[in-house]
């Protein structure tokens, strides 16, 4: 399940994380310009494999999925992934917003969370963080094919 490369085949519906406008993109699109706000948005998946360190940075946002591998680490103040987050490594953030969070047995997680659903395996470590599950502040629940991989 984890680290399964998400290959979108057909066109898919995404929601801009800047203006919440919904539009369709090609299955393999990585980034595009939002027709609602004309700003560039990332719609592809972010896959961190090996001992990759992403960050520390201010924000990491995508309309797709974020996958953090076993030795990988993601550090950002704000993380938003409409397609879900799968973590076997480390995520350190101040605030995380996603449709679905999956924490593997060796995952280490820190960050206030708003998610529609969370799946946590025994062994995952969570540093003190505020959880709000299920929570859908940006209306991802009715997004067609939300989180399809």
């Amino acid at each position: 399940m984890l680290l399964a490369m998400a290959r979108h085949t057909g066109p898919r519906m995404v929601q801009c994380y800047l203006c919440r406008h919904r539009f369709e993109v090609g299955g393999r699109a990585q980034s595009t310009s939002c027709p609602g706000c004309n700003k560039p948005v990332i719609v592809g998946d972010l896959i961190l494999k090996g001992s990759t360190l992403k960050g520390p940075k201010k924000e990491e946002r995508t309309c797709g999925k974020i996958v953090v591998g076993k030795k990988a680490r993601l550090m950002a103040e704000f993380v938003e992934a409409h397609g879900g987050i799968e973590c076997e490594g480390t995520i350190e953030a101040r605030h995380v917003l996603t449709s679905r969070l999956v924490l593997g047995a060796k995952a280490v997680y820190k960050g206030d969370l708003q998610a529609q659903t969370v799946e946590m395996k025994p062994g995952a470590k969570v540093k003190p963080s505020q959880f709000a599950v299920p929570e859908d502040p940006i209306g991802l629940a009715d997004l067609p094919q939300s989180g399809s991989g």
Binding site: R100, P122, S129, Q130, F131
Partner: peptide, 21 residues
């Protein structure tokens, strides 16, 4: 020390999980 959370469950509050919790 350990926590398993199934998909569909609901949780509002502070979470601290691990041997150091």
């Amino acid at each position: 020390a350990k926590m398993a959370m199934a998909e569909g469950s609901s949780f509002y509050g502070m979470c601290a999980v691990g041997p150091d919790a």
